[in-house]
Design a binder for these strands. Sequence first.
DNA 1: CAAGTCTAAACTGTCGACAATCGGCGATTA
DNA 2: TAATCGCCGATTGTCGACAGTTTAGACTTG
Lengths: 234, 234
Amino acid sequence: MRTISPPVGLPALAETDLVGQVARRLTEAIVQGRLLPGSKVVEAGIARELGVSRAPVREAARLLEQQGLLVAHPRRGFFVRQFAADDIDEIYDLRLCVERHAAVLAARNLTSESRDRLRRQIEVLHETADLEDPARQVEEDYRFHRLICEIAGNRRMLRLFDDLASELRMVIGLIGRLYDDPHEIARTHEPVLAAIEAGHPERIVAHVDYHIGHAWREVGRLVREIPPWPAAAK
Amino acid sequence: MRTISPPVGLPALAETDLVGQVARRLTEAIVQGRLLPGSKVVEAGIARELGVSRAPVREAARLLEQQGLLVAHPRRGFFVRQFAADDIDEIYDLRLCVERHAAVLAARNLTSESRDRLRRQIEVLHETADLEDPARQVEEDYRFHRLICEIAGNRRMLRLFDDLASELRMVIGLIGRLYDDPHEIARTHEPVLAAIEAGHPERIVAHVDYHIGHAWREVGRLVREIPPWPAAAK
DNA sequence: CAAGTCTAAACTGTCGACAATCGGCGATTA
DNA sequence: TAATCGCCGATTGTCGACAGTTTAGACTTG
């Protein structure tokens, strides 16, 4: 009688994943604006601060580079990415392209269970709108859009969304405030869900276009208004 | 009077980028099928073979992981990615989503110069069709599609395309042959370019859909036919 | 003979060390 | 006075080493 390895894929807990932990800490610091765009990320410094050696820090930095949060200048080190206005356009352009598609797919795959998750998430959006916690609000907003990608069922698309979202989180973090009243933002998610439930591709695309396009314009406006990014500490 | 630094831009030579070189070698080995899906990539082995230490190899491996060519199992090492039929679907689904959009943007940005580059590339496709060099043919094919993304002008989209293409190259390399007659493939690019030149979004999308959709179906068929991937040498 | 156990070898995760390189700053020169 | 040159400290790129874990295989046991 075989005591087979318990079949299913639980993502092996890698409690000793230093690289992952370092990456998370760095991401946090960047998104929260503790590491400003343009500033140099000194390997030894991070390593000492976290009580690890430079090797894991380097690997984590490469990860964040691939993710677009850091840029590497060979022989000079890693720097926190600086965003220009056209970066915002690129990100939103790509996001729009992906989310249109994701929403259409999501509509096709929609089950009562996934529909409820989307509805519930909109409720959460309304609930957090009352809290004075912009970071949380941004987070829950992305969670809704991420759900759509998840329901669409394309893992690569989901990862792409996550990458775009982490760049956007950084930008929004830098702006320091939301582009709209939280309640208003929460409300504007409803037509998108309605369109997905209705299942007409054209309507879905139209509503996603409107929703994302609005954010695009507003964030773009803010970025262009407050452009001289918070001091690129060498 | 300023003796400004001798004006022009020589592309900085980064000759000492071990990580990059290792990554390229590994990618090569994988795409050419010298490292089979499922096989373990032993850091020390690669390091010795290339005459470097393990550190650069690890960093390169992390890069390929992010790119989807390798998967990392904590404490067990890196393994060459195995593709299942639904991976093909994911990749083509995303590729279709991106290229539709890219083509429409490319049409919008089209200059006589970029148009000529596209035309020229189709000629190259016809020329290489006569050679008995599938790898080259695949390469030139991607070069055409990459040009479209380049002309579209969204760097992030271009990078996404490159990532998808490297996964596809690996799959096609494994299949070991093209899904169609090279001349036929070359020919089917013409309507796509024509639609882009004409500039009607609907026509562009329709032709891209047809072109990519065809490849999708054919590659999908081959993958399902020859499914038991060449021995996953543990 | 299948299943289970134990041991040695093979690897990965991390670290600390060292040489090569970069950026800044003061000295030098026109 | 301003542009250059050359030196010094700081930082990166790379390496070899070591501990802890996983894997492969020989060996036992029912």
